[in-house]
Simulated assay, not measured.
Amino acid sequence: MPTQHQRSGSSASEIAAWSPIAKLFIEALLAKNAFDHKGAFARLRYECAAERGRAHGYARALLTILRVRDIHVPEEAEARIRECTDLEQLDTWVYRAATAKSLDKVFGR
């Protein structure tokens, strides 16, 4: 029989990735029964999934720009781009990719 985490779809790695402040906030709210935790967790999971989706979109756009501009992207660099979840960083890379002559310039080296 699946555990509560398995039924809700929250993996240990997702929970571990939450910031310490987010964990404390959620624990405090749960301790006070201040809200419907199932609804709040659903909203939180939706927001996390939406942010991952935006990051995925930025990564795809960045890789497309680099390929169209014939800038070689080694596997390690592609993995770095695909694994990045920092939207500001991805936005910076996309902006730089529009004019950069090399991958080093995209990464700010």
Rank of each mutant, 00 (worst) to 15 (best):
R45C: 05
A31S: 12
E88C: 06
L44S: 09
T85Y: 08
I71W: 01
L63W: 00
A59G: 01
A77P: 01
G53T: 08
P2G: 02
A40Y: 14
D91S: 07
D91F: 05
E76H: 10
A50Y: 09
V94N: 04
A28Y: 12
R60E: 12
A28S: 13
T99F: 08
Q6A: 04
S19R: 11
M1P: 09
R45I: 07
N33W: 10
P74Y: 02
I71Y: 01
I65S: 02
Q4Y: 07
W18E: 06
P2I: 01
M1W: 09
R69K: 03
K23D: 06
N33V: 14
C48T: 14
C48G: 15
N33T: 13
G9N: 04
R7M: 03
A61R: 11
E75N: 08
S8I: 06
F35D: 10
Q4M: 07
L44M: 15
K101D: 08
C48E: 15
R7I: 05
F107G: 00
A16R: 06
A42T: 11
G57S: 13
H5D: 05
D91C: 10
A12K: 15
K105N: 03
L62R: 00
I71P: 03
F25P: 10
S102R: 03
A40N: 11
A22E: 10
E51A: 13
E76V: 11
A31E: 15
L66R: 00
Y46H: 13
F41D: 12
S10L: 14
A97I: 02
A79R: 13
T3L: 01
G108E: 03
S8E: 10
R96M: 00
A31R: 13
D91Q: 06
P2E: 04
F25C: 15
R82H: 12
L90V: 02
R43P: 10
K105S: 04
A50R: 14
C48N: 15
A12Y: 09
R60Q: 09
R109P: 07
K101G: 06
S11M: 04
R67Y: 02
T92L: 06
R67W: 04
I81E: 00
K23T: 11
R45A: 10
A28Q: 12
A42E: 13
F25Q: 15
A31C: 07
A40W: 13
F107P: 02
Y46I: 13
K101N: 07
R96Y: 00
C84T: 12
L66W: 00
Y95E: 15
L90W: 00
